[in-house]
């Protein structure tokens, strides 16, 4: 079954901005799906429409076969949203935020308390349940939003840049939580600007640009299209001239860092053989950019509107 099915979705804002120009998108049940795109591409508008925060101009949205126009309450009952911005009542306690949310979904108070406890323990917030939410740290507030989105056990969880502005430690722990939630059967749609996050977590991906889907495929098949990897190498000894190795593009940064473009057909083994022949010793090696980041930029560049 499809967790989300979007057909010909269009949105024109009052000022005439054509934010969505007819999007078709399917997300299978159980998937961990990335919806990526540059700022202003239409990601948030799409999510806003799916979550009933934005009124669409045209098109259909179905959530687990429930049409958002014809069977609105059922369709909405399937969704949980973790928005970009903190949007809970900061004067309420953590537990009250979750209990109210459960109440909006018609969950009786006794059951709501059980659900809230489960979610707060999962998010390691149980000890903070009676804390007024404005007193929480940024990372805790993010986790409150995830707990709130999960309290009614949604079948489709939408995460709109859930780790924006949080430190790397919290981000990694949130990745683990998201994986656990997905493993329990919840379909997840993730938008993020951290492409490493999408690459690590998601199985399928759609890239949206200028209100259109420009790519929609499996993450693995998209990454397989990448022909060149970019590496930074730290040399043991400084050099004065850039080594010339046929088949590789190499730049010298300072006197001991090499930026190397490695085409797939050449491979790293040959590069190291050539460097060894030239008596160059490499201390460390790292990817210059995330693989998905490179593909993302290529796709977005291709989709730039032609200037007159």
């Amino acid at each position: 079954m499809k967790a989300l099915s979007i057909r010909n979705l269009q949105k024109t804002y009052k000022g005439g901005v054509h934010a969505l120009k007819g999007i078709d998108l399917d997300v299978e049940e159980g998937d961990f799906f990335a919806l990526l795109g540059p700022n202003g591409a239409g990601k948030s508008t799409t999510i806003g429409i799916v979550c009933s925060l934005v009124t669409k101009t045209k098109g259909t949205v179905k959530i687990f076969d429930a049409d958002l126009d014809k069977n609105r309450e059922l369709a909405k009952s399937y969704i949980g949203l973790v928005p970009q911005e903190i949007n809970f009542n900061q004067f309420e306690t953590v537990q009250d935020i979750l209990l109210n949310q459960a109440g909006y979904y018609g969950i009786p108070r006794k059951q709501a308390r059980k659900n809230a406890e489960k979610c707060l323990r999962q998010m390691q917030l149980w000890d903070k349940r009676n804390t007024v939410s404005r007193r929480l740290s940024g990372g805790m507030k993010r986790r409150v939003m995830i707990a709130r989105a999960l309290v009614h056990s949604p079948r489709l969880l939408i995460l709109d840049e859930p780790t924006a502005g949080v430190d790397i430690e919290i981000r990694r722990s949130m990745w683990q939580l998201m994986r656990e939630v997905n493993a329990e059967g919840t379909t997840i749609i993730l938008t993020t600007h951290y492409l490493e996050e999408a690459e690590n977590l998601c199985r399928n991906i759609a890239i949206i640009n200028h209100g259109r889907i420009v790519e929609n495929s499996r993450m693995s098949s998209l990454l397989a299209r990448l022909n060149v990897d970019y590496f930074v190498m730290d040399l043991a000894h400084p050099i004065k001239e850039v080594p010339e190795i046929p088949g590789f593009s190499i730049e010298l940064e300072g006197d001991s860092l090499l930026n190397v473009a490695v085409p797939k057909e050449q491979g790293l083994n040959r590069l190291f053989q050539e460097l060894t022949k030239r008596d160059l010793q490499v201390l460390s090696l790292k990817n210059k950019s995330n693989r998905l980041e490179q593909l993302f930029l290529d796709l977005i560049d291709k989709d730039q509107p032609q200037s007159a």
């Binding site: 949007n87 009542n89 909006y104």
Partner: peptide, 15 residues
Amino acid sequence: TKFQKHIEELLISPV
């Protein structure tokens, strides 16, 4: 509720 954006809690839910 509008200003602090927690109106979104209600708009998203099936109320």
